[in-house]
């Protein structure tokens, strides 16, 4: 299959869209990959506390070269820093924060999201694939607001916003909002509702790129 042209917002612009929606004072967990970009775009006049499930509340930016601490990493196993006022804790406390509903926002990547908010993001289910789930199932089960940030379609143009997920689920009816390169979309009881479209994107084009019928 051929790769398709990617239209709309860049990855950084997508991250910026999500960052602008984070309320001041939120406790936020950012997943590995594109979600991590969001931290670079949060406005300076608001305070957001980042949680990383491997035991740090108050995760700061990447350290300067030479200042890395091998035992101070994020869930993606990258070197990070701890902010002033940060705290460390063990995994049971970390997932008490997650599963117990103490975190405000979790932003995750996705393979597929269905119109009812089902999320598939951990396994393609292909033979020979090494299944790895990490903390995704706990995050979607417990965090108050679950947002997805993802390209609108796959590299070869297949739907990622689908009628029903064909890949193994991470959670059922868990996604609240989706940020893609084409649009910001709310998952509602009636279906997927378009909140904002990227410049130059028409509703007709957006609908062509989306399997379920969208609400304008």
């Amino acid at each position: 299959m051929n790769t398709v042209e990617r239209k709309g917002w860049s990855r950084n612009e997508m991250a910026q869209k999500a960052a602008q929606d984070i309320p001041d004072g939120s406790y936020v967990n950012l997943g590995i990959g594109m979600p991590e970009l969001i931290a670079d775009h949060v406005p300076e006049d608001i305070e957001v506390v980042y949680h990383t499930e491997n035991g740090l509340l108050g995760m700061g930016p990447v350290p300067e070269a030479g200042q890395e601490d091998i035992e101070l990493i994020n869930a993606g196993k990258k070197y990070v820093t701890a902010t002033k006022g940060a705290c460390f804790f063990h995994h049971a406390d970390s997932f008490t924060m997650i599963r117990g509903g103490h975190l405000d926002i979790s932003v995750l990547g996705a393979l597929q999201v269905c119109e009812k908010g089902d999320l598939a993001n951990w396994s393609t289910g292909k033979p020979g694939a090494i299944p790895a789930v990490g903390g995704a199932m706990d995050l979607v089960a417990g965090v108050k607001n679950v947002w997805v940030i993802t390209d609108h379609v796959t590299k070869v143009g297949q739907f990622k916003l689908v009628n029903a997920c064909s890949f193994p689920l991470t959670g059922k009816g868990v996604v609240d909002r989706v940020y893609t390169n084409l649009a910001v979309i709310e998952v509602t009881g009636e279906g997927l509702k378009v909140r904002e479209m990227a410049p130059g994107i028409t509703f007709e084009y957006l609908q062509e790129q989306t399997e379920p019928t969208l609400i304008q």
Partner: peptide
């Protein structure tokens, strides 16, 4: 394979 929080708990 166990979800990370389930493994901890």
């Amino acid at each position: 394979l166990v979800p990370q929080g389930t493994l901890a708990e």
